[in-house]
Design a protein around this nucleic acid. Structure first.
Length: 192
DNA sequence: TAGGCCATCTGGTCCT
DNA sequence: AGGACCAGATGGCCTA
């Protein structure tokens, strides 16, 4: 099996170890986010949802046309024929309710698109299947924390990570990024 | 077959 | 008032 290769110095990627290989605008936005570390708390989400271009369907179970209004596709309440609880509540099949459903699907698509973008910025194993949403979030948190530590340390990224992997730093510091998920991925990086 | 993950619908709440 | 956001419920798909 081929080993993944990544160099902090050259920001070069292989097709098997996905890092920073996305749209230059996305990369720039992430760069800005990492550079402006002090404002991280105000910019936890770097991509506005409206700016996320739609990507290819990520799920095999996604409907062919996500914008179609398909009340018969209703899964959760498809056989619920009980009347709405309040007089102000729109009936399940009303135009208002269908429009709200369409908006909600579009909103979820936007969120999923952002998750796809985020997946492209966290280290993954070459053989790894698609990260789940929760794993993507946790890995991204750890990865950002690591990058922040590298920036603050002023050390060479390569040597810093190698030191960490040798536990010389982990032994006396409980770093936020020090998760088994991330350290395992870092150990896959071939530096030269 | 059980559990994890996901898409979708739905109603409530908040915001503009 | 209408849209955005959120969480609960439900059922489908996939994998160990």
């Amino acid at each position: 099996m081929e080993e993944p290769c990544y160099s902090f110095e050259e920001e070069e990627t292989t097709s098997e170890f996905l890092l920073w290989d996305q749209d230059p605008n996305d990369e720039l936005q992430l760069d800005n986010l990492l550079l402006d570390y002090s404002s991280l708390a105000d910019h936890l989400f770097p991509w506005p949802s409206s700016a996320s271009p739609p990507t290819a369907p990520i799920s095999s179970v996604a409907p062919p046309s996500p914008f179609d209004v398909a009340p018969e596709r209703a899964l959760g309440a498809e056989v619920d024929s009980s009347p709405p609880p309040g007089p102000a509540a729109p009936s399940p099949g009303s135009a208002h309710r269908r429009a709200a459903n369409v908006r909600e699907r579009k909103r979820m698509l936007s969120i999923n698109s952002a998750f796809d973008q985020l997946r492209c910025h966290v280290p993954t194993f070459p053989y790894e299947k698609r990260l789940s949403k929760i794993d993507t979030l946790r890995l991204a948190i750890a990865y950002i924390a690591l990058l922040g530590e590298i920036l603050l340390s002023g050390c060479e990224p390569k040597s810093y990570v190698e030191q960490c992997l040798k536990s010389s730093l982990q032994s006396h510091r409980q770093a936020i990024w020090n998760t088994s998920d991330l350290t395992a991925r870092l150990s896959w990086i071939k530096w030269d």
